[in-house]
Amino acid sequence: MEEARIDIGYVAALARLELSEEQLPKLQKDLDNIVGYIASLSELDLTGVEPTAHAAALTNVWREDEPKPSYDRDRMLANAPALIDGDLIRVPQVLPGEGSN
């Protein structure tokens, strides 16, 4: 078997993605294939070429710092998976320690 090009377990941990055992062999094969393909860029001499981050050359777009009405709070919160008292988003405990929500 060819050597794996990409350590899927490590990358999935960085991306916070749970993968099932059944998914792994196919993902490994697909990604190794794709990484092998994109490695073709290494054959180009890119000395002195500036990178392009963006197609439009806009920089420093400013706006006036004026208070304006924002979106309706209740409608925004209506999409939250869990609420406390109707106006706080309930999340799992973030820092270890005593007590929990």
Binding site: I38, L41, S42, L44, L46, V49, E50, P51, T52, A53, A55
Partner: peptide
């Protein structure tokens, strides 16, 4: 990969 791709993007442009 990423930086190299951004440079080739310049060439494509």
């Amino acid at each position: 990969y990423y930086l190299r791709a951004q440079k080739v993007r310049t060439l494509i442009r």
